[in-house]
Nucleic acid binder design. Structure first.
Length: 110
DNA sequence: AAATTGACGGTTA
DNA sequence: GTAACCGCCAATT
């Protein structure tokens, strides 16, 4: 049986699902999404998934940054998108994680 | 099949 | 706070 391939697709779906749960004005790290998707060590896979995602799915992929608050390379528009949602930056390329890092625990509490 | 790459994370310097 | 190094895992070459 091809169960292992099913696992991979499941992981991708989980990633997309988590993406939709990110509230406006918040950001999530690749590692956080990977953890919530069941693969804490597969942060890079999340990045690869996002890269493969077509823009027509309306997924808030611009709300995903790396653990340092760094935005995705080769995608300068991401900064504008985040700024438009109220996200502030520390320097010219780092998101203010202290303010805008999404805390999934709030979802449980709500 | 082996080596390289990649929208990364954590630790160390 | 920033930079360099290593470790992880799957996709690509």
């Amino acid at each position: 049986m091809d169960e292992n391939r099913n696992d991979k697709e499941s992981f991708f779906s989980e990633v997309y699902t988590v993406l939709r749960e990110i509230p406006c004005g918040k950001v999530a790290t690749y590692g956080l999404i990977a953890t919530l998707s069941g693969r804490q060590q597969c942060a890079r896979l999340v990045g690869q998934a996002l890269r493969n995602v077509p823009a027509n799915l309306s997924l808030p992929c611009h709300r995903v940054v790396n653990a340092s608050g760094r935005l995705a390379p080769g995608w300068p528009e991401q900064k504008s998108l985040l700024t438009k949602e109220g996200v502030t930056f520390r320097s010219n390329r780092y998101v203010d994680m202290k303010r805008h890092l999404w805390n999934p625990l709030e979802l449980i509490n709500s």
